[in-house]
Design a protein around this nucleic acid. Structure first.
Lengths: 192, 192, 192, 192
DNA sequence: GAATAATCGAGACGGTACGTCACGTCTTGGG
DNA sequence: CCCAAGACGTGACGTACCGTCTCGATTATTC
């Protein structure tokens, strides 16, 4: 008999629940086993430990999808939409991210895997936005979308982890008007 | 007899050593006690647990001092120096920061205290830099130093925590030339 | 300043209370100090430890007095009275005896001291009883009062510690009629 | 997997050794675990604490067997043999008995169980002794063996616990000649 | 009377053992 | 062969006492 996929699902589901409820540290393998009506051996047969289980969960079994920001016809509104969308993703996964980060910091391989999942190319959806602006004839010069995305991500993560202030609309507008649009203008001007 | 400050010092010193040596998770209270030639009771008399001990260590007993970046006579070099200095601080405390962040995420009051310590007004030393440029007659317009500092911090933290790439000189120059200087130019131009 | 006798009293009183309430093992010096509003140092200044403190309490500060059994005019009734009186003493000190016995068994010097107090010559009051019977002209032959006392004590302690059955009047009469009186008769007959 | 009986044996054996070597108070659960190559959890899975473990050991896993006293052909010698045998049992288990008694006094259910073990009907082997005397034609009348056994036990326990004097042959002969034989004679005479 | 010295309460100190909990491994019996 | 159940050895946790110690404050003698 081969490994039963239904057990894997039950274990991953239980893990996801507990990760949000009590966080990574306070979540024990015994708890997961109990909630999944699984045996600890069944868990350890598939994953070498708690970190690997959670890493697998985050990287391969949870879709962190950013719905593509709507085309509003205005680059500023598109940008606010992109920032807000990314904020929304982090806020929705807030419990899980906060439950997971400890191991991200102590376990390099988990961190690497997690980063791969969190930074999929399109996570902020800023590239199409620039493209649309260009198509509308707005002056956007030669903007590297990767660099723009990095700044968006950096501002949001910084807000979430370092300042701890809320990821609200006010923040999004401030970021767009105070930093992103000036940057785009500067890159555009420099490119001319 | 009141709590003996010398014991507190010994315990905090031992904690700091072990935090860097083995990390937060692998560091046990018994180890700390042994290394500090203290008793576990003496530790628990002061702090309710490992997290609180480490939090206190980081927040109140470690100076995260950024040596003011040198005056190079050029705003670009000053900026590279500021970014490099902040990177240096985080890199020097890397083990400790990574050892600490777990509790930052589960303990709200610790997180608040920690943020207060990590974000002291002058941590990146960007404000005097702008001032010097202005005195040299460079066109810096009306730049809000807080906003500039936020961008610097965001880029460095993002590099450290999210991308995980090294905080080297190449990164610093890329950040200055690709993001910070364009921003400053844009803000300055807008201010004209 | 010399040692304050009032502190000694307070400490001994607290010890006696706690000994009865929670027993020797569960009684801590901290508890005694707290209840006596004394400092631990004050206790250790007088006694080397818990065992010695309790030993001193039992041996020198508690009177285990057996009220002399009444003269009933009948040797049988006098004997029942003596047994009952001894039972009464043990029953009254029941909690304390049971709280103390543990250390009696592991601490030889305490045990010796305690035995000295528990076995003061007159503890069962059987000697005068025999004397009165002799004076009334009853045939009591040459009875060694020490031996009689030993049997009385043995039967009562055995009942208390080994069988655990109640020290009631039924037991006293059974002991007198089934064992003590036959013994006295036999000793008397042998002496004739 | 069910509780492994071999672990139970190893733990009980280690407990028995340590109980005799260092006594109840100085014996720690960690010591027992180490000597039994067991884990503390394995111990606590079976017994709620040290007292219960030792109680179980004494009550259910140690045979306090009194080898039936030899048939010497003389009732006096048989009696001396019986008393000596019982003394021997207590002396052999001396360390363990003394290590145990604390919990006997604070734990009622343990005390009951222990009494059941210590007072199995044949513990002093006095009943067959009387029977043999009767068969040899010696005048023993209607002696209640339970009552005789109680006196034997009471005298030995009293010697052990209260007077603390040695359980030697001198004591045994004194008890037989001074108390037991007179009692038997008296009961026999009363029965005539 | 002021100075001296011992005792007081309070409680911190280095230790040791406690009983609990989670880890990751291993064993059993059923499907 | 996998499964659930759960016992196993290991080791850290946070608590409770032990007996020693160091504090100021409060006395009672001594000068």
């Amino acid at each position: 008999m081969r490994l039963d996929p239904s057990r894997e699902r039950a274990i991953l589901d239980a893990t996801q629940e507990l990760l949000s409820e009590v966080g990574f540290d306070r979540m024990s393998i015994d708890q997961i086993a109990r909630r999944a009506s699984a045996s600890k051996a069944t868990i350890y047969r598939r994953w070498p430990g708690k970190e690997a289980l959670v890493a697998d969960l985050i990287c391969n079994h949870i879709k962190i999808d950013v719905p593509p920001p709507p085309d509003t016809g205005s680059m500023r509104e598109d940008l606010v939409g992109a920032v807000t969308g990314f904020c929304e993703v982090l806020r929705r996964r807030h419990d899980m991210i906060f439950g997971l980060l400890p191991s991200l910091l102590t376990n390099a391989s988990l961190a690497a895997a997690l980063r791969g999942n969190l930074r999929r190319p399109d996570v902020t959806g800023t590239a199409p936005l620039i493209e649309r602006a260009r198509e509308r004839g707005e002056p956007v010069g030669r903007i590297d979308p990767a660099r723009l995305r990095t700044v968006v991500e950096a501002l949001v993560w910084h807000r979430l982890l370092v300042t701890g202030e809320p990821l609200d609309r006010e923040f999004a507008e401030e970021a767009v008007d105070g930093t992103l649009l000036p940057l785009i203008r500067s890159w555009t001007g420099a490119g001319v």
